[in-house]
Design a protein around this nucleic acid. Structure first.
Lengths: 334, 334
DNA sequence: CTGAAAGCGCTTACAG
DNA sequence: CTGAAAGCGCTTACAG
């Protein structure tokens, strides 16, 4: 409601002076600045962002391109946490948030990239058509791919912050192996869900081959507690004691596995060791406390937003990829 | 990058015509409109929101005033869900989100209310100084208090959508009573956390008095799994079999209670029935499956955003309060 | 049906 | 140190 003109009138100066005073311009006499600021505070003045944005060609907005399911995430607590923390961090830096639900078919990313409606883009989506990526680069819009590495295009010439899931899978599996478990199985996502699960499986196989062991089975499941429970409960190999270690690729399906084994009369970790992936809070609630690989959410958020901020400040420093190493959280299920 | 002027040049019309064509003005000839739209799409045109906002005095932004802890919520999965769904709903309506972390001390709400930087305000915070509320009303800024009912001021003359937690507490307790449990205890939050827990306790007492029973104890705990576990594990009354029903006022502390009882050698529900509150997904994972009171998150989000949208459209329809009745989810822990 | 003009509320180069 | 002026990119009343 209050504008700098009204403040100007009340203070007996021009609106240019008010603008400078409120923006801490060194040109303004200290006394004037104080007087103007006092009046502005008195009037509950808040600068009109639209006017400022139009003038300065900055929007103070970050576009967040995320998977459709945010807002109704059940088995995807990791995403809830990632996106929540990201929003938290961006707001602390004073940005508005423009959420766009991904989907690689439409033109949203290109249009945003070529508009002045966002100052930067955080892309959490599995993929992007190469053509859109070219528009994005050419537009000079600051961006970072977070968590997912797009595969549809070949170049590595992009800003990217992601977790080294292959290492995570290797870490989990090595931990089972060094604990004397040799008959290992992994419980992973259905095909086409996301490459990250393929990477975890690849780490699983890598660790096994280092120990000159064969895998004893790969079970694919939807990432829900119910489905994972059923898959494990009805697995012949598990029932028959043919395996003694399970790498379940999310904590939810790891907990479901333990529950299924419990109902099968199999003891964890005495008969079968189980290791999860995510380090969700609830893994530490129930016995056996879940040994797991931590998704470095905080690091992902910190490094991702940091890289974006640097891109925004220093217009187009050159592409940077960061691969974050997850950590092992040892509890009692192995 | 592209502006309506450039489109105008490419289409051989004035920029006024472009603006009208893009906004589906009925004044524009069909052929012109199609041609302009095709060119705009070709150029990946996206309207400059700052310019539009400045001109129209609308920001396309909703301010979300929420508790500080979002982004690092652990025991507060309910909030993660509420805020996630709210953001999802608002973005579907095309709004930007401006997150403000509450705290009743500063002037943020007043300043936002008197600015043109948001079109409406959703307030999820425990309280607000009465003076700020008066500024809010006087400003005619559309708003709705969601989930929390501010108590610092006396009037009921506000827009409010909340859950009837007293009814929720009554519902839980009645369910225990009708199942023959008469020695009832409740596990609630520490004082001063939020009135909603007082309301749940009040419903607990109301149900008991309808059955002419006395309460057998009120335990206060932090709302973490660990703390609740300790409180229940070390409760004399529970150890000594003096109670046969527990109303735990969140699902997390209900699950912790069940775990503590398990370790105490108490069977649920045979020895003690336990009922929770929230209806978190994980309540249905482990046996005994948790009977609980559902927090009507979807209804809260739908009715809250609906009320706000109506306030925005019909500038200042009169204040409206909606009290949402939670539902009982019967599973196997009672 | 279309165009020229005014104005939304700021910031900042220019002049003093 | 301060002010007058221009301009950011739109929308829309006014004129034709």
């Amino acid at each position: 409601m209050a504008t700098i003109k009204e403040i100007a009138k009340a203070a007996g100066v021009s609106h240019s002076t008010v603008s400078r005073a409120l923006n801490h311009s060194p040109l303004i006499k200290e006394a004037t600045r104080k007087r103007v600021q006092a009046i502005a505070a008195e009037m509950d003045f808040e600068v009109n962002q639209a006017a400022r944005s139009l003038n300065q060609s900055i929007s103070n907005t970050i576009g967040l391109v995320i998977p459709e399911f945010f807002g109704d995430m059940k088995s995807e607590l990791f995403f809830a946490s990632l996106i929540g923390k990201l929003i938290h961090t961006l707001q602390l830096q004073g940005f508005l948030i423009k959420i766009e639900y991904g989907g690689i078919e439409d033109q949203r990313v290109r249009r945003l990239a070529r508009s002045k409606n966002v100052d930067g883009l955080i892309l959490i989506q599995k993929d992007l058509p190469e053509e859109d990526f070219l528009v994005l680069k050419e537009s000079r819009m600051p961006y970072v791919f977070l968590h997912y590495e797009p595969e549809l295009f070949s170049t590595k010439d992009m800003n990217l912050v992601k977790t080294d899931h292959q290492y995570g899978g290797w870490l989990a599996t090595s931990h089972l192996l060094t604990n004397g478990r040799r008959k290992l199985m992994t419980l992973t996502a259905l095909d086409g869900i996301s490459v990250e699960y393929q990477e975890r499986t690849s780490g699983f196989l890598k660790a096994l081959s280092e120990y000159r062991e064969e895998q004893s089975g790969v079970i694919k499941t939807r990432l829900t507690f119910e489905d994972a429970y059923q898959k494990v409960f009805s697995s012949r190999k598990i029932q028959d004691g043919q395996i003694n270690g399970l790498f379940a690729q999310t904590d939810i399906i790891a907990l479901a596995s333990i529950e299924a084994m419990k109902d099968l009369g199999i003891r964890v970790p005495e008969d079968i060791s189980v290791i999860g992936y995510d380090n969700l809070e609830i893994g530490s609630y129930f016995k056996p406390y879940l040994t797991t690989v931590e998704q470095p959410v905080d690091a992902l958020v910190a490094k991702g937003s940091d890289l974006l901020m640097r891109q925004i400040k220093e217009q187009g420093i050159f592409p940077e990829q960061q691969l974050i190493q997850p950590k092992l959280i040892v509890r009692s299920s192995v």
